[in-house]
Design a protein around this nucleic acid. Sequence first.
DNA 1: TGGTACATGTAACATGTTACATGATTAG
DNA 2: CTAATCATGTAACATGTTACATGTACCA
Lengths: 173, 173
Amino acid sequence: MPDRPLNATAASLLGFLHERPMTGWDLVATAELLIGDFWSLTRSQVYRELAAMAASGLVEAGESGARDARPFTVTAAGRAAFADWAAQEPGPETIRFPLLLAVGFGRHLPAGRLAASLAAHRVEHEKRLQRYGELAAAVSDDPFATATLDFGRHYEQAVLGWFDALPAAVTQA
Amino acid sequence: MPDRPLNATAASLLGFLHERPMTGWDLVATAELLIGDFWSLTRSQVYRELAAMAASGLVEAGESGARDARPFTVTAAGRAAFADWAAQEPGPETIRFPLLLAVGFGRHLPAGRLAASLAAHRVEHEKRLQRYGELAAAVSDDPFATATLDFGRHYEQAVLGWFDALPAAVTQA
DNA sequence: TGGTACATGTAACATGTTACATGATTAG
DNA sequence: CTAATCATGTAACATGTTACATGTACCA
């Protein structure tokens, strides 16, 4: 009974469970590390999806270990559901960038507001680029992880390039 | 009674209404055109937000015109709410990119799946870059609209650059 | 013994998506 | 007259966020 195609968040959890059984906590940490930069999720969501997937037999909770830690294991049905998801064409990306809204409505912002926001965001993006650089060595043996990290680097470089190409009419607004 | 800070979607609608009264339909079209590439919204959402904002006095429905068209006007309270929103520091962007999930889980995908997805997406991104190029002339008199469009160009160029730098280990998986 | 990291979860709410349902106006 | 476009909305559901509540184990 294929309830309906998995959503990408649930599918990702299943994907991680292909490697080894993990607790909800582990999954959050793993997801943050490996896909957090282009697919965010919260603890609440993880527990909810795990409960739902356990109910439909895609995962199974193991014996509680220390501190009630309940490792989940992917079942055969879970592998099948993941495979179904993986066979789908991935959808288009969505980007939600509040700073760009601020730019778009720049005419209506109080003086100095946009300049300050741009400066603050630029710093963050520089940090992220630097972090990606530091992470690169850690995943150099995995071409897939390297590729996603590399996306991040291209992205951050583009954002920085965009900041630096903004005309004074925008940065001084 | 400031119900609570506006969400970015509602704020954007208010922003557009600063220019002129518009119907829900108009707002959808305007938003798609001007911010659709980095802030998506649906018709349902627009009508819901308009109803909510009308209930709290941020907008007012005018006389119905042809075909029940109900133009909404921003009120003084609406301008104030928008100003409050605009004074906030814009939050970080969120990117949700299913293709990157596919790359990250590349090891688990059926043979050829990833290559096909990458190729299909590359075509889309090329089209988008081209579209942005064509749009540029239309907004050349507005530095803010030009800046957001320019972000799109930087972004698309980065994505294309990333595609082209992918190693065979990924593109041939 | 005290703080940090580990670990689980619920409840309430906000936001976003999809499908459905209806009808008027206009251009051809 | 008929198809496309304009225009409104509801209902149901899926997804995502925030705040709250609880307790254990480890390390210094």
